[in-house]
Design a protein around this nucleic acid. Structure first.
Lengths: 209, 209
DNA sequence: GGACTGATAGTAATCGATCACTATCTTTTG
DNA sequence: CAAAAGATAGTGATCGATTACTATCAGTCC
């Protein structure tokens, strides 16, 4: 018996394992420095074999982004499901997002790294589209919150949406820098409490969950 | 006439020009993909000549980070100079930081890219130190604001400081993604207004600039 | 004229990608 | 129901391009 000869996986299985390997690697190192050799090694495979399942490296990254987008969005929607209050939904999404990042630290690393680049890759296009969809969703929730009277009528919706997403990005970035993902989970509720006070209509009544 | 024969600059001048070239390049492309050849080409020099002024590439990046740290901190202190109100100082620093980023889009790109990496380079150490100093400064201002009564006494100082920095990082990140640095300048005052309402003691009075 | 700066040319290492070949799995067939 | 045949997955070597870095020679400036 050799030291862990890999069994033959089906093409579909292999692609899925590849995506997981990349996300796992991205959680520890700079995504840009993840080579096809590193990916292959991390999944007990030879480097050349990867190109039997993906036409090129760009396709691997696209697959990873698709995985992240689908998983994240599903998680956010699940967290928001059944909630009536727009403000409560915002908080649920906020915390769900943070929870997702905690479970998959490689995901934001990939996003930031990919979106930061100048060249418009297919992966970047997909990430951008997801971000736009996200922004629109938050904007709708804020408008709904205004209609309900939960949020100030004179609130700058656009700025509030920008701050919502920016706050998450900032929190995640700080956790990445500190190399401690538990930080973001710990700080998220406290930070959101300040954000909430910034947007609600009547500070002092909106006791939470 | 050759295509721009470079005059002989002194070593010090050449180093300075190099740093500026890197920051300029970082404003357009992913910092990790900036090669020594690209740097040299951008400043009308041959690649090999760079290593006459820097021992290796890491030294170039360290010099760039030193430049960024010094310039940013000077700008923030200048903006805060003479201001009495802690809250007003926070806003001044906030806007000054955003202004700096607008003038040098490459700076945050370098910061994010460098801090994201796993390996602890000298440049990363410097960036981390600057961030810590920054956080401490913000924390002091928040505590001072509490003492003055400008900020809520029950405010979570730590979370407020985290949110302050996170907000800037998030704003900048979104501008980087959108590839439009004017965005951050445009949104900054509106976003800070929401943040201010989240931390001040009495919403409805502190309306200013 | 002598020390410094820059150009030219070249190194070893590493990257993504390709290829012929082999191992493994699935299907067909007598 | 096995054994051969066909299809798919993985190996290992290697290619061309690119990387940071260096050695040698020529020009520049005080």
């Amino acid at each position: 018996m050799n030291s862990g000869r890999t069994k033959n996986l089906s093409a579909e299985e292999r692609r899925h394992v590849t995506v997981e390997a990349v996300i796992d690697l991205a959680g520890r190192t700079n995504p840009d420095s993840i080579t096809t050799a590193a990916i292959a090694k991390h999944m007990n495979l030879t480097q050349g074999a990867l190109f039997r399942h993906f036409p090129n490296k760009e396709a691997i990254w696209l697959a990873v982004m698709e995985w992240v987008a689908a998983r994240l969005m599903a998680r956010l929607e699940k967290a928001a499901d059944g909630l009536d209050s727009p403000l409560g939904t915002l908080e649920a999404i906020f915390l769900a997002h943070v929870g997702f990042v905690f479970d998959h630290p490689g995901a934001p690393r990939m996003m930031f790294g990919e979106l930061q680049g100048a060249r418009t890759t297919p992966a970047k296009r997909l990430a951008r589209a997801m971000l736009e969809r996200y922004t629109a969703r938050v904007n709708d929730l804020i408008d709904a919150g205004k209609d309900r009277g939960e949020l100030r009528a004179d609130l700058d919706s656009e700025a509030a949406a920008t701050l919502f997403i920016g706050t998450i990005q900032g929190l995640v970035m700080q956790s990445l820098i500190a190399n401690d993902m538990a930080l973001v989970v710990q700080d998220a509720p406290r930070v959101f409490a300040i954000y909430r006070r910034g947007i609600i209509s009547n500070p002092g009544q909106g006791a939470q969950t």
